[in-house]
Design a protein around this nucleic acid. Sequence first.
DNA 1: CGGGGGGTTGACTGATGTCAAAACAGGTGG
DNA 2: CCACCTGTTTTGACATCAGTCAACCCCCCG
Lengths: 244, 244
Amino acid sequence: MTRSCFAERLERYLPLTDREAHALASLEDHQREVPRGTTIVRENDATDDIYVIRHGWVMSYVILDDGSRQILRLHFPGDMIGMSSTAFAEAPETLVTLSEATICPFDKSALRIIFEEHPRLAALFHIVAQAERVSLTDRLASLGRTSAKARVAALLVDVLVRLRFLNTQIIDTIPLKLTQEEIGDATGLTAVHVNRMMRALSEERLIARRDGHVRILDEAALAHTANYVNRYAELDLRWLPKPR
Amino acid sequence: MTRSCFAERLERYLPLTDREAHALASLEDHQREVPRGTTIVRENDATDDIYVIRHGWVMSYVILDDGSRQILRLHFPGDMIGMSSTAFAEAPETLVTLSEATICPFDKSALRIIFEEHPRLAALFHIVAQAERVSLTDRLASLGRTSAKARVAALLVDVLVRLRFLNTQIIDTIPLKLTQEEIGDATGLTAVHVNRMMRALSEERLIARRDGHVRILDEAALAHTANYVNRYAELDLRWLPKPR
DNA sequence: CGGGGGGTTGACTGATGTCAAAACAGGTGG
DNA sequence: CCACCTGTTTTGACATCAGTCAACCCCCCG
């Protein structure tokens, strides 16, 4: 049995017991390699699956009646996706890979064991879910109350900070696996206007672009125009139950 | 010890054991009556508290650097609010009452017992959190990809459906405890434009307004212009652990 | 009677969307 | 190696939705 990517993520915050690590690893028994553009789950399809991303980028989105798309979130290695299947029999959102990816699917019933046998892990699931919820509210404020330029900046800073959390090698350059159309669908803008905002950010020397990569030249200034708050830095784990 | 409002909410979906109901009731031991406009928690303040709303309306919001406000969600009786304190030592959002209200505060450490002793309740917490997350993604799509009129309609339908879930007496009229400024802050619009949209909805005979109440005249049409999806109807609880 | 908060309306502005065309890039088959 | 094809980026001209500003109304309340 291989190591769990999700466990690795959690261990950035606190050490797990062997029993806990083992329980998480068993969720990732299975793994599947898929090419870019693969639909893992389609909105409204019945599904009981949850996935841990081992490698690659994934996006979640919904399609509205008029055909427009809202990208809800980008997901990176170590993220657990498709969690909404724990609450709903039909998927409320589509999951599509943005790069070739390795994902570990497991049935939601596997969580029963976690909740019964590993109260501290269950509480950690809860904490991670809360952190994701807060991150969504940040995006809500971004879409509701900030300018086009700020929204694009927010997306870039968010990706940079999250990739850096995974890989401290990443200093200032991100391989942007999104088209401008997709950036638009994530930020609530049109592709054309995204292009204008990227150019504006370039002209202000906040970013530089070269063959699909974005280099953040002035992270502080970019984060400031984006109204960015880093939520991942500090979680409060003091209330957790004892591990088993 | 009084009955738990939160337990009542859960029992809309499945029966709880006495032990479970008792555990939830103990969270609501304490209760506090507060007038309209009370700040329960202020953004960035240190807090370990979680609250169950027993009576009244509450809103959560964030303030951006430029002073603008984004209302994140409206909260009604039976809702558990301030849950983000389980993940963060400082509150990421402000909670303010929109009416006189009765709230039951408890320390997040009380959840430890729930996670240790009541795995099924823990799983239900998880499910409720997922449902809230999906509801947030619906709002994200609303702000990112729909017109001003649709956003206002979405807010009205959401309030109607959620109030009706609490009280089946409510057929078509909602006591709107929000100013147009607040509706604007919830939908990412200005108060002036909210006014125009409300008028438009009135003129289309989708709603009627009288002394602070909104009557939904054509719910189906309103839900359609809002792109509304009712997420509360059906939760999938088959994977839950056995109760204790 | 006066003041403040909220609602309503009109005239005007501006940010973002729409449409269209051209430049560019990468992949495929001949 | 080239020619082509498709999808993406870039740019300009123009349209429109929502924001801004300002006035006035109403109502409640001190």
